[in-house]
Write a protein that binds this DNA or RNA. Structure first.
Lengths: 298, 298
DNA sequence: GTCATGCATAAGCTCCACTTATGCATGCTA
DNA sequence: TAGCATGCATAAGTGGAGCTTATGCATGAC
């Protein structure tokens, strides 16, 4: 790799001029003036120590040296042109979405099929993690994460406010004679009681925090807690937006209007610099349409 | 050819960085700073709308997109590198010398074998023409032509002054009883009498021009006139330097010291811009050495 | 804790790739 | 044979891409 190439700009100009056998036409193709082409060719010829063109009046011709060089440079540029033109299409081929587990399971996964149908050329690759991904270190196109939406260098669109509320299986509610007033919630087990949000929920309901029984083991993932609630094992503190299907199906219901606003939300985010990448724009437009909201924050 | 490539400088930098998996090393190879590499890669990533590298601490890695692109750009640059590196050798392979007929036949051709032995890698291609060649229109490396050596854009080295003198075959001289004084020349036929130089020669000899018999037909090429002289058909006006071998061999001799200086000379000439091309320098050095003179004129 | 490594970023400069304008030679046309 | 069109060369001047220098930051090694 020690042999140094002549200036690439000169090579590019030569490639075009040799192909078109005209400095004027080459200039037109490259979007520059004939004088610039003449200059670059002269530069290259001086660098190589050999004339590449014969300047016959009204007819440009390649010298033998030029004839030898032309196909080789053309081949090289053909490779580059093809690579970079295919690169564009290829880039649209897969979209890597990194989301938090709950959002993937409860919201995105069920709807993804629709997106795939609408965008058959882009395969969506779902990754779920809990840790915060760094776009400069991991190969991810967009993330869906919870927080306040103020991440430097990223554009974030708010998807869903994180507002917890009590959710119970209708069967369990009936079994304890109905949950009519907030205090009735102590008639059932409250799942994942170590979750800090319970304290805020009890406060919002005007109930004494010490009545929360802490003897149940922590579960952790909201999806699993929800399964337990659906199975009638107790009441869970859930983000209502994630369980609309379960509510419609009668597998869960919300006994009280009380909600805890955590001040955080789920956001769709990606690097500012990639805001105009087609596959990212398409995904953003679709997900915001599904959410029915369009609150953007830089 | 409509799809435009990203800036070539950025592609070149990417190729090196992808190959070396290090911005710092790529910068060293390309003879620039790490900051410049970082800048160019960023430019390319923004242009393509996709990251090409993963910036992991102390370890650079290619993204999938980068992995796809890298071998293609490397292939293209390999082609270019090989083409331009072979171009150099190839260029030394043949030297095209365009000379006037007389010089080729009487001086150059007999000595060319020696040159070829000394420079086995360069094949000399001899072209003989009488018209003046234009370097920008014809594929010629060097010319040998007669004139005054003042050609714009060309470097010219004087080889041989054009000084005509009377040459006769010894046999013919003896046959007419010897050529002792200038007037004796009228005892033999004077070949090519229409050649204007005869008038000057007679004047230099102090002889009356009207004594030149004009009845012989013109011959034209000096080589052929010389053959006629060697054959004893008359006296010829020749450039002595071209017939040294014939003089040594006793096939011609110069009866008088009288010479006509035409004011012109034979010159080796080539474009100024190619003064440093190895094969041209080598040929120039050789021919000047053979001549034993080194008079240069721009 | 300290040092070394390696990429990112900001600010500023330098050079060269370009443009504009013109010239020159040629071949076509009437 | 003059006049026009074509196409490359050349000179002079300019703008900005592409560079450098300087610095910061994160990480891993010792």
């Amino acid at each position: 790799m020690t042999d140094s190439l002549p200036p690439l700009s000169a090579i590019r100009v030569f490639e075009a001029a040799a192909r078109l056998l005209s400095f004027t036409k080459a200039a037109a193709e490259l979007g520059m003036t004939q004088a610039a082409v003449s200059y670059q060719i002269k530069l290259l010829e001086e660098r190589l120590g050999a004339p590449l063109f014969l300047r016959q009046p009204r007819a440009l011709a390649l010298t033998e040296a030029g004839q030898w060089l032309a196909p080789r440079t053309s081949d090289a540029f053909d490779l580059l042109r093809e690579a970079f033109s295919r690169f564009g299409e290829r880039e649209q081929a897969t979209l890597i979405v990194n989301t938090m587990h709950t959002f993937a399971a409860q919201w995105l996964a069920p709807r993804l099929g629709v997106y795939q149908l609408a965008h058959p050329k882009t395969a969506v690759q779902l990754e779920t993690t809990q840790r915060v991904v760094d776009f400069s270190r991991e190969e991810v196109d967009v993330v869906i994460r919870s927080g306040k939406g103020n991440w430097p260098g990223l554009i974030a669109y708010k998807l869903i406010d994180v507002r917890f509320t009590l959710m119970v299986s209708p069967a369990l509610g009936k079994q304890v004679g109905g949950l009519h007033k907030p205090a009735d919630m102590f008639k059932i087990d409250l799942l994942d009681p170590h979750d800090d949000w319970w304290q805020l929920f009890l406060a919002a309901a005007g109930l004494p925090p010490e009545k929360l029984r802490m003897d149940l083991a922590p579960i952790g993932l909201q999806t699993i807690t929800a399964s337990a609630a659906i199975a009638g094992r107790g009441g869970a503190l859930l983000v209502k937006a994630f369980f609309e299907q379960e509510i419609r199906d009668g597998r869960l219901y919300q006994p009280f209007d009380i909600e805890v606003d955590t001040g955080t939300a789920y956001w769709l985010a990606f690097p500012e610099s990639r805001r105009n990448v087609p596959k990212i724009k398409a995904f953003r437009d679709w997900i915001l349409g599904e959410i029915g909201t369009h609150t953007a924050q830089g």
